[in-house]
Nucleic acid binder design. Sequence first.
DNA 1: TAAAAAGTGTTATAATATAACATATCAAAT
DNA 2: ATTTGATATGTTATATTATAACACTTTTTA
Lengths: 132, 132
Amino acid sequence: MALSAEKLTNNQQTVLDLLEKSKEPLKAYAILYDTQKKGIKAPLQVYRALDKLIEIGKVHKIESRNSYMACEHKNCNSSTSTSFLICETCDQVSELKQKNLPSYFAKQSEQADFKYAKHNLEIYGTCKDCTK
Amino acid sequence: MALSAEKLTNNQQTVLDLLEKSKEPLKAYAILYDTQKKGIKAPLQVYRALDKLIEIGKVHKIESRNSYMACEHKNCNSSTSTSFLICETCDQVSELKQKNLPSYFAKQSEQADFKYAKHNLEIYGTCKDCTK
DNA sequence: TAAAAAGTGTTATAATATAACATATCAAAT
DNA sequence: ATTTGATATGTTATATTATAACACTTTTTA
């Protein structure tokens, strides 16, 4: 079955719904707290749902924050490589359009005798709203 | 006092020495274990030393692995931005020369109305030795 | 040499994530 | 339709990563 058509289970859908409603990335235990009324009772239920959602590209983990966000792109094709813009002022995170990044990084890597497979890029700075 | 001339305390030097000898990034509790004979007894002593070493640019944290490595560059000027090549086969990590990356990312960020300050880039793939 | 700043040692605890195991559900291929 | 194999679930316990709080010491600097 194609990844994009994957049918989600209850727990997976519950976690994804929450992340899609959220304006900011959420931490695992915040997700746990916010989904208790939907029947999720233990950390593992959250982590397992997240694992699956990440695997199919619906959710990304922001490594430096230990937090999770729904992918902003429809039919995300990058279940692996990720690029974020993280506002240090308001903590909002958006995704940078990948476009040429993988090929750019592949070229850079090659110069170091390294075979590129995927990447995670976290850019810190100030978002539009917070610059005003 | 200039950061590059910073004088290290005993604990800081102990942790840095260990990381510089290591061929791979180390985790905090591995550092704790390996420095017990040098008098470091508690996690906080490790984390405090790491915090300082990271601040002055002598050590970098690999966020996706929760591990730490000594900076490979003499007189590292990037206490903030970091770029790694992480081998998925042997777990060795090397640093990618930054050169144009900050300005490249600044330009990319600008197109999304985002003011670049610093970045963390983690590229996964296969190192030279593991390609053979 | 006093005051301020930075670091230490220690105990306790918070925050993040996984192991293990028994059971349940679902898809698809006989 | 029923077996079968893969995937998901619920649960308890525990591992891993990191910080809070506090009393004290050392170093820097004005």
